[in-house]
Amino acid sequence: MADAIVAGSALDPARALGPSPTSRFFRRARGHTSIMFGGGVLLVIVLTALFAPLLAPHDPYAQDLFKRLLPPFWMDGSVPEHVLGTDNLGRDYLSRIIYGARVSLLIGVCTAVISGVIGTALGVTAGYFGGRVDIVITFIITTRLSMPIVLVALAIVALVGGSLHAVVLVLGLLLWDRYAVVMRSATQQARSMDYVSAARAIGCPTWRIVLSEIMPNVINNLIIIATFEVAHAILLEASLSFLGLGVQPPAPSWGLMIAEGKEFLLFDPWVIAIPGVALSILVLAVNMLGDGVRDISAPENRS
């Protein structure tokens, strides 16, 4: 069978040669459209979030009940001072989008990182060691998967109240399931490669095998899951906010703006479409960046 043939490319003799890996990485990145585009958009969003007070035309908290739900610029009845219109309480929608980027980015990235670390650690450990370790970790994974997030969220709200920290922690500590499951099976697959067996045979320490032989082979899967978890976390924050766990009003977040737009869905779809498009752009950028990083760091592209 063909799959018995050694997939030797990942041993990657090129790694030790030439300029340092980091500088090669950046050189390659510059020529890669996905990275340039994805990274560029992401950078703009990050800068927007950082400099929100300078960029926002209005105070995102200033409400004016007499100017509620003014439509955005492309619709009839819009006013020039509110380019993207106003929300249900008459707050400037553009300013809320700009400030909302802070919360959403924070939640998306922190959650993806926390849960990524947990999930990868569990998944790789289970996949690499197998046996009893695998059983214990499978137990943890299955228990987690069977536990509804809503239930945890409501309990935490009742116990300690809601806050931004609470939602990041809850999401980070709960959303590692997809990482763990995918990493586990990817590691199982990588572990059975001959070069891993070879490394073990020559007495390489486990941590080195995991870091230098297993990880490069499973990192693609990690990046893909991570890019989806960013969007997942941002949207989930919205539903948790509605249960009282997420950001506390009047602070805006994209997820919350989308969830609040639900009431206006049929007749004023722009209320939901504006934060929805913002989130789509963020997710797309993260994905393109992830894709690009995958392309240029993948073993098969290195020679």
Partner: peptide
């Protein structure tokens, strides 16, 4: 939220606990 907005205008900061 609207009530919180009105309160904040006179200097009362109400921290919303939603449950």
């Amino acid at each position: 939220e609207a009530m919180m907005g009105f309160m904040s205008k006179v200097g009362i900061k109400a921290n919303l606990q939603w449950m």
